[in-house]
């Protein structure tokens, strides 16, 4: 099957810059997938999207969307994708409805088609009541929704969303996630960028972590958290039995199969870093605790979060 998006050895250096904004990036996205590009500010996410959407000229490398080379055949490629950019670019001389209709006209839809479609999408995105006001009156969230509706007007195969939920309130964010999943169920491939870990974990089937224009890791969110931080985590709050002390308790717990390492945060719970699934370790851990007559007051199972992975890979430095 032709990948929905394919990027190979992509390099972009902006004029008068001495580092590459994108530096040898390669990945591919399967049709129907939601793919997340996760990276800190300036990582090269928008630049990558820019190359894929024919707005940034690649310095070298290859990029294609739905089998069409975006570098050599940009006009044909533009029919196959749509993009919602990081900054609003709605046409302020037109009403929201006209924004949709004209976009469809640029893409060759007939008048009847574009009017019907615009009405349907305005409805779906909850904008039907405010379809004929000034675009300037729109809030950030509404503008974002309108841009996604506009993107869907010409039925793209691949939709690029550059930081779709940055600056949205929780309601709008949930709405956006719902709509994006909706799109996938209609067969649209979605590539989104974000620096929100929760969003990447929640939305994406696979996540590529980029920094300094390079791909640092690429896997499912679960795979990333399990593989890279290396550890699922089991947190147990206990009161040691009489005559027992926490250090000995931790030593005993570390002997349980699947527990790699344990530590007690001063006064807090014992954190056990696991090499397997927390659920399989829970029973033996409880057995050890009750064997030493320690009182268990609280258990928390968790994966090391994507944030741990992100920080581990990209460091703590600000850019």
């Amino acid at each position: 099957m032709t990948p929905a998006v394919e990027v190979r050895d992509l390099v972009k250096r902006y004029p008068k810059r001495d580092v590459n904004a994108v530096d040898g990036l390669s990945f591919s996205v399967q049709p129907g997938e939601i793919f997340g590009l996760l990276g800190p500010n300036g990582a090269g996410k928008s630049t990558t999207i820019g190359v894929l959407t024919t707005r940034v000229k690649a310095t070298s490398g290859e990029a294609s969307v739905a089998g069409v080379d975006v570098i050599r055949d940009s006009v044909a490629a533009r029919k196959l994708f749509a993009v919602v950019p990081q900054q609003t670019n709605l046409d302020r001389s037109l009403t929201p409805r006209q924004n949709l209709a004209f976009h469809a006209a640029y893409h060759g839809l007939s008048r009847a088609d574009r009017n019907a479609k615009a009405a349907a999408l305005l409805d779906e995105f909850g904008l039907a009541d405010q379809a004929d006001v000034k675009v300037d009156w729109y809030s950030g969230g509404m503008a974002q929704r309108l841009m996604i509706a506009r993107a869907m007007m010409h039925e793209p195969k691949v939709l690029f969303l550059d930081e779709p939920t940055t600056g949205l309130d929780p309601q709008s964010r949930l709405f956006m996630w719902e709509r994006v999943r909706d799109l996938r169920s209609r067969g649209v491939t979605v590539v989104l960028t974000t620096h929100d870990m929760d969003e990447a974990a929640e939305m994406a089937d696979r996540v590529g972590i980029v920094d300094h224009g390079k791909l640092l890791a690429l896997d499912t969110p679960e795979g990333l958290t399990r593989g890279l931080a290396g550890h699922a985590v089991l947190e147990v709050s206990v009161t040691p039995g009489d005559g027992d002390d926490p250090d000995k308790l931790i030593a005993a717990l570390t002997d349980v199969v699947g527990v790699e390492r344990g530590e007690a945060v001063a006064g807090g719970p014992i954190r056990l870093y696991l090499t397997t699934d927390p659920a399989t370790v829970l029973a033996p851990v409880i057995a050890v605790l009750s064997g030493r007559s320690a009182a268990l007051t609280n258990v928390h199972m968790g994966a090391a979060s994507l944030e741990d992975v992100f920080i581990e890979l990209t460091g703590r430095g600000l850019r």
């Binding site: 707005r55 006009v75 029919k79 950019p85 670019n89 709605l90 004209f102």
Partner: peptide, 14 residues
């Protein structure tokens, strides 16, 4: 400021 032209730059024409 407005980036309004972007939608037209992404239309299927050179």
């Amino acid at each position: 400021f407005t980036r309004e032209i972007e939608d037209r730059l992404l239309a299927p024409l050179p």
